[in-house]
Amino acid sequence: MARVRRPGTRWWVGAVGLVGLCVAAEVQPAYSQQSVSVRAALVKGTLPTDDPTAAVWATAAVSEFPMSPQVHWPVRITEVTAKSVKVRGLHDGTNVAILLEYSDPSEDPEDAAALEFMVGDTKAHFAHGQPMAQVQGGPVNIWYWKNKDGKGVDMGAKGFGTLKPHAHQDVKAKGVFQDGVWKVVFSRPLHTEYLEEDTQFKPGEFASIAFAIWDGKKTDSGQPKEKGSEKAISSWWYFRADAPPDYSPYMYAVLAVALALGFELVLVRRLKKGS
């Protein structure tokens, strides 16, 4: 005798649960900005290239990176003032501006900060692009600012002792010291004509970035506390200028929904015909 079972609801609850579990297994958790990268949002209007305190900076995503004393090569330093640096970025499709913010108890003429980038597609060592034994390394592009100079310097290096300013200068920088905090904004066109010397920013693509900070406070010897290779540094992190909004994924999703609905309709009709 055939066993008769009353249609229950438990099994389809289980099926829905199973679908949910599969989806949960497949879906990646949303990426959180755990300060592995700096994101420069695309903005309309004037870029605050000469104003580190502009209100628009408050709208930029902030990333924070730890800083270490430079111990990689002599002359080393064992204690530095800057323990971390907060970084924000903005771009307008033509120029990019990057804001550094870090603590420093005093404003001194020798206070300085720098950004470092790889040039082109060739990887470069974070310490001034020093040569690597088994890998052909590339040069680095360094944007340097010193308080007493009040301007940005566009520099290049490929190994220790090779750091020098470029013949062309297209980096601007301005620093403002307030309440024990330096805010320094660097800016430059996203693209330049010096492909062999300058890093080029392609919106939507990740580039490597590193930071350096010098506390120029004078010690009893009359020398700055941090100078030259005696500085606070980071190794490579990531930087990305946002690409313009792309709505095509929404269009593809709508198309996929329509196709899936059509598939369902055809399937159900065929099954009904078959039965």
Partner: peptide, 12 residues
Amino acid sequence: LFPLLVGWQTYG
């Protein structure tokens, strides 16, 4: 749910 799931995966 099925079309929505397909659309979601396509977007992702």
